[in-house]
Computed example of a mutant assay.
Amino acid sequence: MANASIRPATAAGHYYPGDPLVLHAQLSELLSTAVALETVLAPKALIVPHGAYLYSGPVAATAYAALAPMREQVRRVVLLGPAHHSQFEGFALPAAQAFATPLGAVALSRSHWLALQKRADCVVDDHAHALEHTLEVQLPFLQTVLGGFELVPVLVGAAGPEAVAGLLDELWGGPDTVVVVSSDLSHDLSYEQARHCDRATIRQIVDLGASLTTEQACGAAPVNGLLRAATRHGLDAHLLDLRNSGDTVGGRERVVGYASVAFCESPQYACRACH
């Protein structure tokens, strides 16, 4: 594979360790000490924060620890996140055919990459992906808990819930496919304000209310689309962890909120599917 086809790990050394041994040790520590609020089985989708590991890593780890038992099953990860550095309509794919991290390169699912380009609202834009950390920071966790898998990385620009849900429907797949949406919650509120705001946001997410704003979650667009898709695919939302940077590193004047949420098949939906 030519180097030009690999997106480099631009967040390494900033959002997470650039040294593979240090990164491996940090991930092992985060995953081994993760304690979720609820035990879930076979999540089909996850909402995971994308801050620096020092800040959001403990919260992200609760989501990935829930995914770890599916290591032998999952072969494809559909990864959606907001674009912080570019503005565009719809969705952006990378031109690169693999994403690098200090733990190695993750290859894209070329068949899905080609199929998505048939959508009028999906463009190939390496510039949008070049410095974007929201997808990259999820990869070392995924590499650790899943081992080998194919990646479908999509940055979400100006897109409504129905458009995002439609894209997810195309990529939904079976038990070998998991969806990960990368998003933090509130930004730059005081500790108590953030707690109040984020609790309200989580109630909305658990109720599958697809009307979040960017003040509630920087990844509101992909989250809303996932919530719409979860409703029609019969998934229930389960809160695994909810904290903010004041909890993880201290400093409570201005904080960022983080949550991990798992989406699993509703027992009622499973029963209906059997008849």
Rank of each mutant, 00 (worst) to 15 (best):
D19M: 12
E162M: 15
Q26M: 08
L54N: 08
A63K: 05
P8Q: 02
L235A: 09
L189P: 01
Q193V: 15
L54H: 12
A229V: 15
H133F: 11
T10G: 09
V59E: 00
A63V: 14
L54T: 12
Q73F: 15
S111G: 08
P161A: 06
G174Q: 10
Q138R: 13
V179Y: 02
L21V: 15
Q73N: 08
R272V: 09
S56H: 03
A61P: 07
A95C: 01
G147T: 12
R76S: 09
V178K: 00
C264N: 07
A128N: 00
I202M: 03
Q204P: 04
Q26V: 05
S182F: 11
C218G: 04
L21H: 12
I6Y: 01
T144H: 08
G250W: 06
A128G: 01
S28I: 14
V123R: 04
A96N: 07
R243W: 11
G234R: 03
G104I: 12
S111P: 05
Q97P: 03
A130D: 04
V154E: 00
S211H: 06
C197K: 11
G246E: 06
V59A: 10
F141R: 09
H196N: 03
P49S: 08
A210Y: 01
A36D: 09
G147H: 09
D121E: 14
R71S: 13
H133V: 13
A200P: 06
G219Q: 08
L67K: 00
L135T: 05
G13Y: 04
R254M: 10
H133I: 12
L30D: 02
P153D: 01
H129Q: 07
L37A: 14
R76D: 05
G57D: 04
Q268D: 08
A229D: 02
D247L: 11
L168Q: 02
L189C: 01
A11R: 02
R7P: 14
G251A: 09
G148V: 00
G147A: 09
G173W: 03
A229R: 04
C271D: 09
R7M: 09
R254Q: 13
P102L: 00
V77A: 04
P69H: 07
V223R: 00
A11G: 02
Y64N: 08
A45H: 00
Y53E: 13
Q143E: 14
E265T: 11
V137E: 00
V180H: 01
